[in-house]
Design a protein around this nucleic acid. Structure first.
Lengths: 189, 189
DNA sequence: AGATGATATATACAAGTGTCCAATTTTATT
DNA sequence: AATAAAATTGGACACTTGTATATATCATCT
């Protein structure tokens, strides 16, 4: 990301960021990520190439920003103190809702992109970071004698594996059924 | 992969495949994957660009083939009937040995490539496929009422997460300690 | 309204990518 | 050793990428 998101974002900058983000999602619904050219994104957004490169290193950079925009919805509610055991479930619920709300978009994306391609890898990678950061806040100590990092990784992986199984490989499952699966997979940790 | 690996591989083809594979590993130990150019690979291998493109779509394709060459060592021994519970441990052991034997290589690679970069994603992705294929052979049924696919994914993810934690982020752990961790993480499934 | 700093734009450029093709060399087989 | 199939080669090509720079336009503040 060439543009500094921490500074005050001007109206023009916001317009540009939104335009490119929107264009990326539009194109992803129509063709594979590999085939998308920076020129296409610029034409659809009505901005010259130079502007694109003012904001992003390359299309991967923009893609990452897209996930960020999407996933930002997930952190709206701050959690008050909760039973430790319920934290993963809470996060699963939020991810479930997020993907549900954007189900149409993801369905279209999956129609043009391989499950193990660059695009989904990028999504998984971003979500993994978000999930780990979130869980790390609440897992200061663990009952078992396992390194905390391992436990956090394991919980993140499991939650996301289930989410991706449900929404990206089209295995419709209710939220309650998801809870059952998650509980069974995570066992007594 | 443009070249058909199922046909009889001629001496010349084998020489070419090996040369490019070797060059890729050599360069990965020296610089990041992103910086490696097809021209570099060709110069080091003493083959013209046209030959490279006779075999591979692009450098990502070659990278994938490299993982294949590396991981092929893992499947040497055929398993006889074993206790179901021991299958994941067996696979962990093989992966552990494979990474141990190539520890020097991976250490060098990690010195120039990010843990969450394209390179490691590609490695993870390939290993995940191999692991899933392997486990699927032996997990025809599961004790719990979970979909088999979920269980296989979960086991693969956990084994690989641990392997990567040990070898790619440099947390030295003995094989026996690894077994303990794995047993704790997988619980009673 | 005018000054200032941020953003947008046009254009040019070097470098890398991936494809194609026709000629040549190597290899496997008889 | 002759033959046919397979692999290598060099060169040309269109296209995409990412950078750089100078100028123009916009937004915000006093």
């Amino acid at each position: 990301m060439k543009y500094d998101l921490n500074q005050k974002i001007t109206r023009g900058a916001q317009r540009t960021l939104s335009a490119f983000t929107q264009s990326m999602f539009t194109l992803l619904a129509k063709e594979s990520f590999e085939k998308i050219k920076v020129n296409e994104l610029c034409e659809l957004s009505n901005f010259p190439r130079a502007t694109f490169y003012n904001y992003f290193q390359d299309k991967y950079d923009l893609l990452n920003y897209c996930w960020r925009v999407l996933a930002d919805q997930i952190n709206v509610v701050e959690l008050t103190s909760l039973d430790h055991k319920e934290i993963p479930m809470q996060f699963f619920d939020r991810a479930y809702d997020l993907l549900s709300e954007n189900k149409a978009l993801f369905d279209q994306i999956m129609a043009h992109n391989e499950v193990d391609g660059t695009l989904i890898n990028s999504f998984s990678s971003y979500m993994k970071t978000v999930t780990r950061d979130y869980l790390t806040q609440y897992f200061n100590q663990t009952a078992s004698n396992l390194p905390i990092e391992l436990v956090v990784n394991h919980f993140s992986n499991t939650i996301l594996m289930l989410i991706e199984w449900i929404f990206l490989t089209n295995h419709p499952v209710t939220k309650e059924q998801g809870h059952q699966y998650l509980r069974a997979l995570l066992g007594n940790l």
